[in-house]
Amino acid sequence: MPAQIIAAGLLFACTPTHVADGDGPIWCAEGPRIRLAGIAARERDGSCRPRHPCPTASADAALRALVGLLGGSRGTVRFPGARYDHVRVSAATMRCLSTGPAKGSRTGAFCQMADRRNLNCAMIATRTVLRWDRYWRRDIICPR
């Protein structure tokens, strides 16, 4: 069943349950699947898509960084039709701002974690992903 897509500009809650990749999707207990907006990670097979920023860090390093920010791994699960395992996480509910639909039944979003840090900025700080200016909001400023 396709995930719920949140319209651009709307705030929504996301309690992360599973992570597939360093930039998403993050599966939310509330229904949506999030693609972290404004960042790019390598694909799980290690490749970078044409015309996407291509970080030097591996896909596994980006996935580990995201899982770490979301409280650490609670094991893995393979969903029907998925090529790779998804990592189970148990993180506090985040507050997210939708940027609208993203490919693969996902909602693009900038998310604030329970500790008030911006998750997208926190991922950039791990140096496992790159900021993707094409999709970055100018009003989001990451601490240095």
Results as ranks from 00 to 15, higher is better:
residue 2 P to D: 15
residue 3 A to T: 04
residue 5 I to F: 02
residue 6 I to Q: 09
residue 6 I to V: 08
residue 7 A to Y: 05
residue 8 A to S: 09
residue 9 G to A: 06
residue 9 G to Y: 07
residue 13 A to M: 09
residue 17 T to D: 15
residue 19 V to F: 00
residue 20 A to W: 00
residue 20 A to K: 02
residue 24 G to I: 02
residue 25 P to L: 12
residue 26 I to S: 00
residue 28 C to K: 01
residue 29 A to C: 08
residue 35 R to T: 04
residue 38 G to L: 07
residue 40 A to E: 12
residue 42 R to E: 12
residue 44 R to Q: 03
residue 47 S to K: 07
residue 48 C to R: 03
residue 48 C to T: 10
residue 48 C to A: 13
residue 48 C to L: 10
residue 51 R to Q: 12
residue 52 H to G: 08
residue 55 P to M: 13
residue 56 T to I: 07
residue 57 A to M: 06
residue 60 D to L: 01
residue 60 D to P: 00
residue 61 A to M: 02
residue 71 G to W: 00
residue 72 G to L: 14
residue 72 G to W: 04
residue 74 R to C: 12
residue 75 G to A: 13
residue 78 R to F: 05
residue 79 F to N: 09
residue 83 R to L: 11
residue 87 V to D: 10
residue 88 R to P: 02
residue 89 V to A: 10
residue 90 S to G: 10
residue 92 A to D: 14
residue 96 C to Y: 02
residue 97 L to K: 09
residue 98 S to N: 04
residue 100 G to V: 10
residue 101 P to M: 14
residue 102 A to W: 11
residue 103 K to P: 02
residue 105 S to G: 10
residue 107 T to P: 05
residue 108 G to E: 14
residue 109 A to G: 09
residue 110 F to C: 07
residue 112 Q to T: 13
residue 114 A to R: 04
residue 116 R to S: 02
residue 118 N to T: 12
residue 118 N to Q: 06
residue 118 N to C: 10
residue 121 C to M: 10
residue 122 A to M: 09
residue 129 V to Q: 00
residue 130 L to V: 06
residue 130 L to A: 05
residue 132 W to N: 08
residue 132 W to V: 08
residue 133 D to L: 06
residue 133 D to Q: 07
residue 133 D to R: 01
residue 137 R to L: 04
residue 140 I to C: 03
residue 142 C to D: 13
residue 143 P to G: 09
residue 144 R to D: 14
